[in-house]
Design a protein around this nucleic acid. Structure first.
Lengths: 101, 101
DNA sequence: ACCCTTTATCGTAATTTAACGATAGAACAG
DNA sequence: CTGTTCTATCGTTAAATTACGATAAAGGGT
């Protein structure tokens, strides 16, 4: 299990987080543990196709996992991967938390 | 001093981090404390105008500060702001660090 | 006054992103 | 088998991003 991120991967994941809708989706996924696409559509003021696209971005960045369940797709946060990102970011930003004058 | 980020602001900052070159720039800035644009140009395989544009993105997202020093501009990481981002992200991602099965 | 260094900005082109409606396919219910 | 529900994908459009070279402006040195 690789616990280290390349700069490119870290950037890819940050980029996926770089849209308010996608942060909202991730937040909801962490809150509800499991969500189908339709549930997200209820919450965000966006069309279903747009939400589906945002979910795809998050999935391709490796931040969430989607598994097909009959006619639906059930999404959940990839906590392992998110923890990896958290580690990488805190490593990057740690100088800001310590050497504060 | 506002220590809380709106979702929009967090997304804006993540988006600014969403490019390998900009992560590299930030890393260098945290390493060297102060850098002029030309120093970054030495390190990254990018044209000066491109680097300048990336610096602008980072500055507009509030991640770095640039102050004019004669003919140069000296950039440094906005550690205060980066700490705020670190806090917001760890708040967002904390469920991934705790509830790991 | 003149040059040299440094950097921001402009203009441009190619690619990517974001949003929507429409549509198609999969799976369950009846 | 038929209809319904759910979601991914397609097609499209507008806007943003990324990269570069060229240029202009600002300031220091001689």
């Amino acid at each position: 299990m690789d616990t280290d991120l390349t700069t490119v991967d870290a950037a890819r994941m940050c980029k996926a987080l770089g849209h308010p809708a996608r942060i909202g989706i991730l937040r909801q996924l962490l809150l509800e543990e499991r969500c189908i696409c339709g549930r997200i559509v209820e919450i965000l003021p966006l069309a279903q196709s747009t939400v589906s696209q945002h979910l795809k971005v998050l999935k391709e960045a490796g931040l969430i996992i989607g598994e097909v369940e009959g006619p639906r797709t059930c999404y959940c946060a990839d906590r392992q991967r998110l923890a990896t990102l958290a580690t990488a970011l805190s490593a990057l930003l740690s100088p800001c938390l310590e050497e504060q004058p």
